[in-house]
C-alpha cells in the first residue's frame, strides 16, 4: 500500500513547480463514521415512549432481583400483624414499615418483589427458548423450502390451532408447577409464531446475492443457515423476543390465575392476583400492587418492542420527515 502511494507521488506527478503535494490522499472527509447499531440507537432514542419504558423496565428488573437483598423482610419471613379498626389482628395497610402493606403472614413488598422476579424469569425463559426454537424452525423451513418447508409449516399450523393455554395448563399441572417447565411449555407454544415470521424473512434473504456468494465460496448448508441467514434475522428476532416477554408475563399470569402455574409457597404475580382477588374490597393493596406491576411490565416491554422495530427497520433513512 505504502509502495503504491510512493510511486504515485514520485513517478506520476505531473511536472511544473509546486505540484508536489505529499498529503494528497490523506485528508479525511468530515462525515462521522456511523455504524449500523449507532444509527439504530439514535432512532431508538428518538422514540420517547420506548426510552421511558426501557428505564421503567430496568427499574422493574432491579426491583425484582436486586432490591430483595436490601429489603429487611424476606418473602418467606413471617411478620407481626397489625391491630385493625375492629380490634382484631389482621393484615397491615401500607405504611413506612410495610410500604405495600402485608397480607396475613408476609410483608407484601417482599412478596411482590419475589413474584415479579419469578414472573420475569418465566417470561425471559419463554422469550429466549421460544425465539431460539422459532428461529431454528423458521430458518430450516425457509432455507430448504419444498417438502421440508411444507412439513414444518403444517406442523406450526397444527401447534397454533391447539388452545395453547389449555395445553400448557394440562402439562404444567402434571409437572407440579415448576417454573422451568412452565416456561418451556409456553415457549413451545410461542415458537411457531416466531418460526413463521423468521421463515418469511429467510425466504427473502435466501434470494439475496450474498447467499449465492456464500454458496459459490463452497459454504455448506449448515454454514449458510447459521452464519449468514440467522445473523441477518437478528433485528426481527429481537423485536419478537420483546413481544414474547410481554405475552409470557400475561400467559404466566393467566396460568397461575387458574391455578396451574407456580405453586405456593413460591409465588408469582399471577399467583398473587389469584390468591388476593377476594381482598379487593377490604385490603385492596394486596390486589392492586401486583396488578400494577403486571401492567407495567407488559406495557413497557411492548413499547420497547415498538421502539426496537422502528429502530431496526432498514427502510428508515437518515432523512428527517
Amino acid at each position: 500500500m505504502l509502495e503504491t502511494h510512493e510511486t504515485l507521488k514520485e513517478g506520476t506527478q505531473p511536472g511544473g513547480p509546486g505540484v508536489d503535494k505529499p498529503t494528497l490522499t490523506e485528508r479525511e472527509f468530515t462525515v462521522k463514521e456511523r455504524k449500523q447499531w449507532q444509527m439504530a440507537l439514535r432512532r431508538f432514542l428518538r422514540h420517547r415512549a420506548a426510552v421511558v419504558s426501557l428505564v421503567v423496565f430496568v427499574l422493574l428488573v432491579l426491583f425484582a432481583f436486586v432490591l430483595p437483598y436490601f429489603w429487611h423482610y424476606k418473602y418467606t419471613e413471617f411478620v407481626s400483624l397489625c391491630t385493625q379498626s375492629n380490634g382484631l389482628a389482621g393484615p397491615c395497610s401500607p405504611s413506612l414499615k410495610h410500604p405495600f402493606g402485608t397480607d396475613s403472614t408476609h410483608d407484601m413488598l417482599a412478596v411482590t418483589m419475589r413474584g415479579t422476579g419469578q414472573s420475569l424469569k418465566v417470561a425471559f425463559l419463554i422469550a429466549a427458548v421460544g425465539t431460539g426454537a422459532g428461529a431454528l424452525w423458521g430458518v430450516v423451513s425457509g432455507f430448504f423450502g419444498g417438502f421440508v418447508d411444507s412439513t414444518l409449516m403444517r406442523l406450526a399450523d397444527l401447534v397454533l390451532t391447539i388452545p395453547s393455554l389449555a395445553l400448557a395448563a394440562a402439562l404444567a399441572h402434571k409437572g407440579g408447577g415448576s417454573l422451568v417447565l412452565i416456561g418451556l411449555i409456553l415457549a413451545g407454544v410461542a415458537a411457531p409464531y416466531v418460526a413463521r415470521v423468521v421463515r418469511g424473512v429467510v425466504l427473502s434473504l435466501r434470494e439475496r446475492e450474498f447467499i449465492e456468494a456464500a454458496r459459490a465460496l463452497g459454504a455448506s448448508n449448515t454454514r449458510i443457515m447459521f452464519r449468514h441467514l440467522l445473523p441477518n434475522t437478528i433485528p426481527v428476532l429481537l423485536v419478537n423476543a420483546t413481544l414474547l416477554i410481554a405475552q409470557g408475563i400475561l400467559a404466566e399470569t393467566a396460568l397461575s390465575y387458574v391455578g396451574f402455574g407456580i405453586q405456593s409457597p413460591d409465588t408469582s404475580l399471577g399467583v398473587l392476583i389469584s390468591t388476593n382477588q377476594g381482598a379487593v374490597e377490604n385490603q385492596p393493596w394486596l390486589f392492586y400492587f401486583p396488578g400494577v406491576f403486571i401492567i407495567l411490565i407488559a406495557l413497557s416491554v411492548n413499547f420497547i418492542g415498538d421502539g426496537l422495530r422502528d429502530a431496526l427497520d432498514p427502510r428508515q433513512t437518515r432523512e428527517r420527515k
Binding site: Q36, R208, E209, F210, E212, A213, A214, P231, N232
Partner: peptide, 9 residues
C-alpha cells in the same frame, strides 16, 4: 452488485 453480494452483518 457490490451492495447485495456482501453479507451486511
Amino acid at each position: 452488485d457490490p451492495f447485495a453480494s456482501l453479507d451486511p452483518r
